[in-house]
């Protein structure tokens, strides 16, 4: 995995500073402009991405099983998980909101898991898709990742707003912490992935 494609900076032993984009020889170790540590590729990027992803995947289980929101209505206590909450919304007739919440808190995390795992595997077993397509998928994960937080914000607002004692009150459930963990960890996973490794086998695979 140490050979880089011909037109890349890394093949000339030049490192692109991750902070200020100054290209300088890797022997300098620190960027002369901003003192950031120089690397040809983010160190351990695949291992770290995989580690964060697997942690997030494990957290995703309690995030779906534990309640996100505990509602007390006239003395009756109701526990809502992510999926449960979406079903309730759908039955109450607010389909558009149900769809928004479904996309943000179910579809987006799953898409992120699939894409990031696929990208990591595509580097190990090179040549699943051509680099340009894989990069597009990577950009998609970066773009959509943050939107999963919508559900957490909704819970935060409802908890703050609805406090009418036993008539109606909302408490956060333990699932919120797990779910926030999933969002943050998948975001870190996407950040620690280095899209440049997708192009390292460019000469062999796509340049026919």
């Amino acid at each position: 995995m140490n050979d880089y494609c011909r037109q890349s900076a890394a093949s000339q032993q030049l490192a692109n500073c991750s902070s200020c984009s100054l290209v300088s020889p890797i022997e300098l170790e620190k960027c002369p402009r901003c003192q950031t540590q120089l690397h040809l590729r983010k160190p351990l990027n695949l291992q770290l991405t995989m580690a964060y992803l697997i942690t997030a995947l494990l957290l995703y289980i309690p995030a779906n099983l534990w309640p996100m929101m505990v509602t007390e209505k006239l003395g009756q206590v109701e526990y809502n998980t992510i999926v449960g909450g979406i079903i309730v919304l759908w039955q109450e007739g607010s389909e558009p909101i149900a769809i928004v919440v479904f996309i943000a808190s179910v579809l987006v995390p799953i898409i992120k898991f699939i894409i990031l795992f696929m990208l990591c595997f595509s580097v190990y077993f090179s040549g699943l898709l051509c680099p340009a397509k894989r990069l597009k998928l990577y950009r998609l994960t970066e773009l959509i990742g943050r939107w999963s937080m919508v559900d957490i914000f909704v819970v935060a607002i409802l908890v703050a707003l609805i406090q009418l004692d036993h008539l109606l009150n909302v408490q956060p459930g333990s699932g919120t912490i797990a779910f926030a963990g999933v969002v943050v960890l998948t975001m870190i996973a996407a950040k620690s992935f280095d899209p440049r490794v997708l192009w390292d086998d460019f000469d062999r695979k796509c340049d026919r």
């Binding site: 902070s19 928004v100 919440v101 939107w147 914000f153």
Partner: peptide, 25 residues
Amino acid sequence: FVMMPWAMVEVFLVGILVSLVKLVT
């Protein structure tokens, strides 16, 4: 640049709107 990806201003705005529509009924 380190902090930038972590600010979720527009996501919170959507969160407000979602909870609004949720409660309007």
